[in-house]
Amino acid sequence: MNQHPRLASPSHLLSPRQDLAIASCIQIEVERISRSQVLFHGVRFTLDKEILHQIQQAQQMGDSLKLSRQLLTDLRYYALIDDENRWQSGLTFCTYYQRGNSQEALMRSVIGMDGDIMHQIQRNCLERPKFSHQISAAHYWLIEEIMGQLRLGTFLPLTRLINGLALGLALLIAMLLVIPFIPVFLKTPFMLIAALVMFGLFFFGFRHLLHLLRPTANQWIIRRILGGFLSSKPSSKRFAKRLLTRLFSP
């Protein structure tokens, strides 16, 4: 859980421009039925000739798609919880193809949480084998990219925070110890080295101690997020989503 998936995988990243173009075809379909209740219907991919071409290129190059933090947070939320705060029963992905002004649904997949997966493909689409193959490959690839990035990455600001805190504490203690003996330090400059060594020891000591607390902090925050997700209050949900978006790397 501490290992960022992308560090481990040898795949390349797409250029930001391509990322944007491909990611713009991903849309979460929701329907607000009351102030506090939102129905999640699924994820919609709207492809056209250009996007299909870019996806093909990305597949050939083994590139991976970078999803925005916000989108990822929403997807993680809906992958877990349904509109009644129960565990999500399945995720629906639908691919539409745009020709001119009209859009036609060509593929639909329902991924059940128990490992039951159903892919539907439109009959007429099969009459053009090459096209149908491109569509299905793009459809599968997009779902794969999304699912592969759901896993929580590293907890972002904690390392920085720990270093900062350890540094601050070490500085504070070193100063408290040094200030009363300033005249001594002025007389014997080599004592400065001793002070620096002491400061270093404090810094590493504190850092180590804070690192020991890290799992507890991690667990606490994840429970916070999950608790917020499961709460019936929209404000708690929003807060939990914000925490997830800000604190975890995509």
């Binding site: 992958a79 490992g115 997966i117 599968y140 690839w141 794969e144 999304i146 699912m147 759901l150 896993r151």
Partner: peptide, 12 residues
Amino acid sequence: ASERQWRGLLEF
């Protein structure tokens, strides 16, 4: 693809 999709969800 399903095997990979499912694995992603499971790992999450």
